[in-house]
């Protein structure tokens, strides 16, 4: 198997953390993974994205130009990157912040009201965790437990008091996709 995932949003949405969490999820599922952040002056404000490649074999390129899954956290990212999703791939997006529907009919559309669910939980900042749970559910090979374990690695120790809040967000994201699927 080979999954080429692009996670994209704006700076401050926790896109990099989301990508790293998925990466740990893959590690705990016994898979190979490579995480590559968008890199360059564009990091200073504006868009942020990262590529997560997951496979059961040794991974070649950390850099991809076509993707088996896109997780778009905002409108600009959806518009910019949806043409690069391979036919049959996953196009997941944060419906709270994206009103226009993606113009693709050859992909699997996954709707995640990430910011809404996170706000309902009282922590809008956890929208990235909701989205991570949702994407994992759509991908189908990263379990809730693997993501939970990953949280302990991606959050620095002085933030571990927030683990339960983030776990709840991941769980809700996963449930929302599992139910609608």
């Amino acid at each position: 198997m080979l999954e080429e995932i692009l996670v994209a949003g704006f700076g401050g949405q926790g896109v990099m953390l989301l990508g790293q969490l998925l990466s740990y999820g893959a590690i705990y599922e016994g898979l190979e993974v490579t995480f590559f952040p968008s890199y360059g002056p564009e990091m200073r404000g504006g868009t942020a994205n990262c590529t997560v490649v997951i496979s059961d074999q040794r991974i070649g390129s950390p850099v991809r130009n076509r993707f088996t899954a896109l997780l778009a956290m905002n409108q600009a990212s959806l518009e910019r990157f949806s043409p690069f999703v391979k036919p049959g791939g996953i196009l997941a997006y944060n419906t709270t912040l994206i009103e226009a529907l993606p113009r693709r009919e050859d992909v699997r559309i996954i709707k995640i009201p990430a910011t809404q669910i996170a706000s309902d939980l009282g922590n809008p900042q956890t929208a990235n965790m909701v989205a991570a749970g949702g994407l994992a559910a759509a991908l189908g090979f990263i379990s809730l437990e693997a993501l939970f374990k990953g949280l302990y690695r991606v959050l620095p120790e002085h933030r571990h008091a927030l683990i339960s809040i983030n776990q709840e967000a991941i769980k809700r994201g996963m449930e929302c996709v599992s139910i609608s699927e």
Partner: peptide, 10 residues
């Protein structure tokens, strides 16, 4: 190089 330096792997 910059790719190797910035990417993350297990």
């Amino acid at each position: 190089d910059a790719i190797l330096g910035q990417m993350m792997e297990p």
